[in-house]
Design a protein around this nucleic acid. Structure first.
Lengths: 181, 181
DNA sequence: TTTAACTCGGAATATTTTTATCCGAGTTAA
DNA sequence: TTAACTCGGATAAAAATATTCCGAGTTAAA
């Protein structure tokens, strides 16, 4: 459907709320905030942690926070963490298979870069330059400049309510129906 | 494994021999020449034909030839024909899901382009510019400049031998073992 | 101090996409 | 007229992706 899978979209969107200083949130909270599958996002954050982009705080009230400053995490970093540094094109050295060589390609045939591969590498380089040139801080700033002044406060309020709301309803459940799983 | 599948690699390599003027070859021949799966390549050429890049000559001794001059077929044309004009990134407008909107995103949230999408489009544009800037004629010329002077003749000879060889062995088979399929 | 819920983490599953294969319909050259 | 060779689409295996689920450990609260 697209060259980059939805993991990238989910990951980038859900990293944005973590760009405010001293913010941490669980993958569950982030998924609800952005309206994506919580179980899937949990898996993605596992990957992001392994790649060193986020740090995990365990236990109740824990969650994830950025491992580096938002200005030090590029869009390309996130993509490579989630998709695994895929090249645009993989060259299988087909040029050496040419039937006129009879299984033993001469030196000139495998010398240097395959012409097709070279074009692809050039295109990939251009693409990566753009992706490496934008950081999470840029994205967060652009979002904030679009939104009304009150928006950041509303976001903070949502996360706060989400946490206390859970605690409250959990307590209620416990009171009413102690054995329920 | 890579963003562009092997179809692109197969397709580009197998279109190169068709760049010489007045050349046509069957998908079977091209596959043998480049050492790739014949049945799969046949399917790819069906796609290339539907996209208008090649023309088919049916019947015995038929095959494919380029529908346009090699200088008028860009690498991007081939990619889009085989991969179907996939965007680098598909935006599912996740920004509108944000929980603080409660299902009804305000105007500012969906106005203009999603910031993440914008970065991706910029990267894609750079990539496409490079891919659109190289044509089959360029690739063929670069290959020819690398190869010894005799190479084009050897290629022609291989295709000729391949055809007469087939006819000969088919005739021999017919003489020796008439009922064999 | 005890409890209980909440967190991450990885294993297991379902679905889609890619890759590869096969055989039939039609055409051409002999 | 024949017979082989061509394309073309329908079919099948393999891989990658998207999604879900449950267990181990930690933390905050009771």
């Amino acid at each position: 459907m697209a060259l980059y899978s939805t993991s990238v979209e989910y990951g980038l969107h859900c990293l944005l709320p973590l760009c405010s200083p001293d913010v941490h949130a669980s993958s569950q909270e982030l998924a609800e905030f952005q309206g994506v599958s919580p179980a899937y996002l949990a898996k993605l954050f596992t990957t992001l942690k392994r790649a060193g982009l986020v740090e995990a705080l365990e236990g109740a009230g824990g969650g994830y926070r950025l491992a580096r400053a938002p200005a030090d995490i590029s869009v390309l970093d996130v993509i490579e963490a989630l998709e695994g540094d895929k090249p645009l094109f993989q060259c299988n050295e087909i040029r050496g298979n040419c039937a006129v060589f009879g299984g033993k390609p001469p030196g000139w045939a495998s010398k240097g870069l395959c012409s097709i591969h070279a074009v692809m590498l050039e295109a990939e380089q251009q693409m990566r330059t753009v992706l490496a040139g934008h950081t999470l801080a840029d994205l967060a700033a652009r979002l904030e400049s679009k939104a009304p002044k009150a928006f950041p406060r509303e976001v903070t309020a949502w996360f706060d309510a989400r946490r206390t709301g859970r605690a409250r309803s959990a307590a209620a459940t416990r009171r009413i129906n102690p054995g329920e799983k």
